[in-house]
Design a binder for these strands. Structure first.
Lengths: 240, 240
DNA sequence: AAGTGGTCTAGACCACGGC
DNA sequence: CCGTGGTCTAGACCACTTC
């Protein structure tokens, strides 16, 4: 048997996908027994080590739990903590519709601090998009994002039409987002924010400054978010 | 050769530890080449798969990076994002001394909401410790933590003497902390907080409600933290 | 061309869990 | 007791990187 089945997909991944499909398709529910290493080896006509590789890797992902002497079981669905999601994705994961309004947008060339965060020279041209996020009728957040104008020609127009910046970047520009570092603190609303978010002057606001990186480790988006009290709580999981 | 060398430690872990020691001891620096699978197999008189297991596992931990066709290299030291650390640990990791003052402490038996978060019955006795954290002379945070009084007899006295609650729990009570879920939002300072933190009434405060779990998945500590604006920023990494 | 990691085989013994 | 996962062997071929 050839180790790799003509399409380039390793055998152990084919086995994983077969199991994944049965879990995601609902045929296997959390707590159910998954085929043992020996069963998988026979089913897929594969050596024990390969079947084992498939299961061990699934366990590492958290899709499955292995208990020595007992078997391999479908793991309970994990809540995705510390996941980088766009506003649109966050909303749709809760079954809600993303709703936002672009307040302003354009290209700036005198934002040295922001350019520096994106590892660009001080006077670089930066695309700026400022949006108010709404829940129902009430605005609850003001988000301003910045990107290199040179790297994303034509982005402003595109982003004005479609809501999701993430999907535009990923599908239109072929960008692979990897992670984001966030600085979270608190400030009082200034005059401009007061008007846009319809809150009293001096109201406490959650401030999140986010720097989003690609899989190559390059910072490509800077986002400044200001969130009204009460309307927004951040969930984080920390590990020991 | 016996697969396990009399003390019960698997061979692949012995190999890992040998490599780890050389990295942590400074003999191998980030970017340096680590012994290849074949070299390790000969050195430790072990099969290729076992040497491979050791390296693959170290790579999964992030201690080394593997590049096909090139070799295995010591990974750059990782910044510990999203790590659960006590205040004492956070301070000492920055080379500072933890400095806090106990405002009040005692046992409560009428905090049903907090008891519920800890999966205890409504009228359970709860140890409460309220502390002001300081940076230099200025107070910057008010932290109140709650634990089951039944599970931690004698804790109040112990915690009054030593600063670190985490180390008391881990060493005195044999607790293994695993992770914490945090809810982060923002409020305005009430009268009591105003006095303790020496800020004007209505000042914006960062509020962090933390539920800390053991390795067995049991919630054992609830912490409510209130942080002054400007004095404290949270760092988070989110992954796609 | 030589060396590396990635995949795979066809077996083996052990420790552990549930019956 | 039997079946499970955990460890291990002594090889093999491939794709890839470096020289």
């Amino acid at each position: 048997m050839t180790p790799i089945s003509r399409n380039g997909e390793p055998t152990y991944k084919r086995i994983q996908n077969a199991i994944r499909r049965r879990i995601e398709g609902g045929q296997l529910k959390p707590g159910d027994v998954v085929n043992s290493e020996r069963e998988l080896a026979k089913l897929h006509r594969v050596s024990l080590m390969t079947a084992r590789h498939a299961l061990a890797d699934l366990a590492r992902e958290g899709m499955v739990e292995r208990r020595r002497g007992a078997g391999t079981f479908v793991a309970p669905p994990k809540i995705h903590f510390n996941k980088l999601m766009s506003y649109t994705e966050q909303m749709s994961s809760r079954g809600l519709q993303a709703c936002s309004r672009i307040v302003s947008s354009g290209v700036l060339d005198d934002e040295p601090d922001i350019a520096a965060r994106l590892s660009l020279s001080a006077a670089s041209h930066l695309i700026m998009i400022e949006r108010v996020r709404k829940a129902g009728d009430e605005p609850f957040a003001l988000e301003t994002c910045y990107l290199s104008a040179q790297e994303f020609p034509g982005l402003v127009a595109a982003s004005l039409e479609r809501g999701s910046l993430f999907s535009t970047l990923e599908h239109q520009y072929g960008i692979e987002l990897a992670y984001a570092d966030e600085e979270i603190d608190v400030t009082a609303a200034d005059l401009k924010t007061t008007e846009l978010l319809a809150v009293p002057r001096g109201s406490p606001l959650l401030r999140i400054r986010q720097l989003i990186y690609t899989t190559k480790g390059k910072a490509i988006i800077y986002v400044l978010g200001l969130y009204r009290a009460g309307r927004h709580t951040l969930l984080i999981r920390r590990f020991r």
